[in-house]
Amino acid sequence: MAKRIFSTLLLWGTILGGLYLFGAHAAIVMLTLLTALTLHEFYGMTAKMGARPFHWMGVFIAALMVGAPYYISYFTGERDVGGIPTLLLIAALIISCYRVLGERDTSNRVETIASTVGGLLFIPFMLQFLSAILMRDADSGDNLALCLWLIAVSKFCDVGALLTGLAFGKHKMCPTISPKKTWEGAVGGVLISAGLGATIAFFASARLPEAMTPLIAALIAVPLAITTIVSDLIESAIKRRADTKDTGALIPGIGGAFDLTDSLILTSPLAFFIFEFLQ
């Protein structure tokens, strides 16, 4: 637990320091790096399941999916949401179909295509919605603050669920997937996310969209927190299927990059559409 707390504080310090010095550029660089590392770990786990994804091609395309739309928008002023990532996803599918004919045999061609493209859809295509939030219209508030709000609400749901579960947890949520998770912990995580979301909205009202009052922020945080729990369970299911305890050893006490991004994979697109509705 001490390692986890220390690593969490160090991570938040690094993130906030980078954002203070370099703004959204630091956010995109960190997101691109974490996305590429997450897909790298995902492909490693699918390999343990018997699939043979086109590993490095996928990691390269993942980095483009997240970083390219933002910088194209930055230099040209053209806002792209989903267009470039969708084209890259289609390109990955076509290239994979070509490559399997010469580089894989009949025993794993289907698995290679499914794991390569499925990983790109599940991880970078979903996480690129964080880039899309950064590219929202400037009149809708400070987009960087909006991303930080989302990350805080998502990650502190994990923390809240862990602490509440340790204190009050009795009823197992999904014992076959994640034996330590309880319904009491889940409720605690959702409540802490809602409270934190409202608190940030109150103190940072000047940087968030005008429509995002503390009450609205708390209401938005609830479905995001629930989705965070589902996203975390999906990562646990993947690890269990791959017979892997940790996705990596990148961060002491926490694990790999996947353990950092897991809660954002499903919440990022959901948050994007909610924020678009609020605009």
Results as ranks from 00 to 15, higher is better:
residue 3 K to P: 00
residue 4 R to S: 04
residue 8 T to W: 04
residue 11 L to M: 15
residue 11 L to T: 09
residue 13 G to C: 08
residue 17 G to K: 04
residue 17 G to I: 08
residue 18 G to N: 07
residue 20 Y to E: 12
residue 20 Y to V: 11
residue 28 I to H: 02
residue 30 M to Y: 09
residue 30 M to R: 00
residue 37 L to N: 02
residue 45 M to I: 00
residue 45 M to Q: 09
residue 45 M to T: 08
residue 46 T to Q: 00
residue 50 G to L: 05
residue 50 G to S: 11
residue 52 R to N: 14
residue 53 P to N: 01
residue 55 H to L: 13
residue 64 L to P: 04
residue 66 V to M: 05
residue 69 P to D: 00
residue 69 P to A: 03
residue 77 G to R: 08
residue 80 D to E: 13
residue 82 G to N: 12
residue 85 P to E: 06
residue 88 L to W: 06
residue 95 I to M: 13
residue 98 Y to T: 07
residue 99 R to T: 08
residue 100 V to Y: 03
residue 104 R to W: 01
residue 109 R to C: 01
residue 115 S to L: 01
residue 117 V to Q: 11
residue 119 G to F: 01
residue 124 P to C: 02
residue 129 F to G: 08
residue 135 M to A: 08
residue 136 R to N: 11
residue 140 S to G: 12
residue 145 A to D: 12
residue 146 L to N: 07
residue 146 L to E: 13
residue 155 K to G: 09
residue 160 G to I: 06
residue 162 L to K: 02
residue 165 G to I: 06
residue 167 A to F: 12
residue 174 C to W: 13
residue 178 S to M: 09
residue 180 K to P: 01
residue 185 G to R: 03
residue 185 G to A: 00
residue 196 L to Y: 03
residue 198 A to Q: 13
residue 201 A to V: 09
residue 203 F to D: 03
residue 208 L to F: 07
residue 210 E to N: 11
residue 213 T to Q: 10
residue 216 I to A: 14
residue 217 A to V: 05
residue 225 A to F: 05
residue 225 A to C: 10
residue 226 I to A: 15
residue 227 T to W: 03
residue 229 I to V: 11
residue 230 V to F: 14
residue 235 E to H: 11
residue 235 E to Q: 15
residue 236 S to C: 00
residue 239 K to C: 08
residue 253 G to R: 04
residue 254 I to N: 07
residue 255 G to K: 01
residue 256 G to W: 03
residue 257 A to Q: 06
residue 258 F to Q: 10
residue 259 D to Y: 12
residue 262 D to K: 05
residue 262 D to C: 06
residue 263 S to K: 12
residue 265 I to W: 05
residue 266 L to H: 07
residue 268 S to F: 12
residue 271 A to L: 02
residue 272 F to A: 06
residue 277 F to R: 13
